[in-house]
Amino acid sequence: MDVQRLLIFREIARARSIGGAARSLGWTQPAVSQHLRHLERQAGTPLVLRRPRGVQLTEAGQALLRHADAIAARVQAATEELEALVQLRAGTVRLAAFPSAGATVVPAAMSLLAGRHPHLDVRLREAEPPQALDLLAAGDVDVALTFAHAGETPAGTEEMVRVPIGQDPLRLVLPRSHPCAEPADVPLHLGELAQEKWAGGCERCTAHLRQACEAAGFAPDIRHGTDDYVLTQALIARGLAVGLLPQLALDAARDPGVAVRPAAGVRPRVLYLLHHREADQIPAVRGALGALTDIAARACRAEHAAPPG
């Protein structure tokens, strides 16, 4: 049966007249009568008895009214739920982010989003960019926060939207006692550390470290490999290595035993938000993208305003 006609029939039953239903709906009486006739043909039996002062429901009409009431209640519930989603009074956003962003950018963005839309439910999964892309492709997350080193082709497919939202500078990290530890605000060339032992990171970060060192004229002696930036700094603080770490990792956790200097000639990595095409038309996703973009922009402004130290 046509749902609209059922709801029109419900108005007739409530008003106890076709004219009353027409006034309630803002329609003409002939239009309401026509819908009632169509519904009765579909039902195969009269639903009302026409009386001089209105209508009286038949037994079939009384039975159908109970279902029409239930349908009206579900339609109203659906309308209210959709309005809540559209007005960001409800909704869920699933986000994947790499660890250092998950410890810095994402909590700030979630806090900002909670202030703007307190009833949104944001769920975070930690994942390096390749894994985050897999989660996005599989539909397990709505948004992926990833990065790409200078010279890399950013992750993504033609079916995905890729939006750059900021830069994450790479810093040389040394023991505080190292002869090159100062001055903190002056860029240091990688070549000055050619004889040092190095700590690498994840597979992609280690590959970028090798490329950067080779561009500086040497092959790095990478003695340690870990994507745990706390462990990397602990090794460096004890004089066991030097390293090249992103600023976000240093913002997330800073070992007091390390010194940090800008890396001369090393371009920053770029942060990207990825999502499926048209996903930004979903209000909850659009709100999350806005909060992440705003926080990343603030972080970039703060980074340009103050030197590392």
Rank of each mutant, 00 (worst) to 15 (best):
G61V: 04
P46E: 11
E59R: 10
Q87E: 10
H67F: 04
T92C: 12
Q76K: 11
V86P: 01
L64T: 07
T45Y: 05
T79Q: 11
T58M: 08
D69K: 10
R50H: 12
R51Q: 15
V55W: 09
P46W: 07
Q76L: 15
P52H: 02
V55P: 10
V48G: 02
A72F: 01
P52N: 01
R66I: 09
G61I: 05
L47G: 12
L88F: 05
L88Q: 13
A72C: 04
G54Y: 00
A73H: 08
E59K: 12
A84Y: 00
T58W: 03
E83P: 05
L64D: 04
E59T: 10
D69P: 00
A60F: 04
G91S: 07
R51F: 07
L64G: 01
L85R: 14
D69C: 07
I71Q: 03
R50P: 00
T79S: 15
Q62H: 12
A78M: 09
V55N: 08
A72L: 04
T92K: 12
D69N: 08
A72R: 02
G91K: 11
L47V: 09
V75R: 01
T79L: 12
Q62V: 09
A84H: 03
T79I: 03
R53S: 13
A72S: 11
E80H: 04
E80N: 04
A63L: 04
R74T: 14
A73G: 01
A68T: 14
L64H: 02
Q76T: 13
R89W: 00
A73C: 07
G61T: 05
V48R: 07
L85G: 01
L47D: 06
L47K: 08
Q87D: 14
E83S: 14
E80R: 15
T58A: 02
T58N: 08
V55F: 10
A72W: 01
E83A: 14
Q76R: 13
L57E: 13
L65P: 13
G54C: 03
R74Q: 13
A72D: 07
L57N: 13
L65I: 15
R89T: 09
A72V: 03
R51D: 12
T58Y: 05
G61H: 03
A77I: 08
E59F: 06
R51H: 15
E81R: 10
A78N: 03
D69I: 09
L82S: 07
G91Y: 05
L82R: 11
L57G: 12
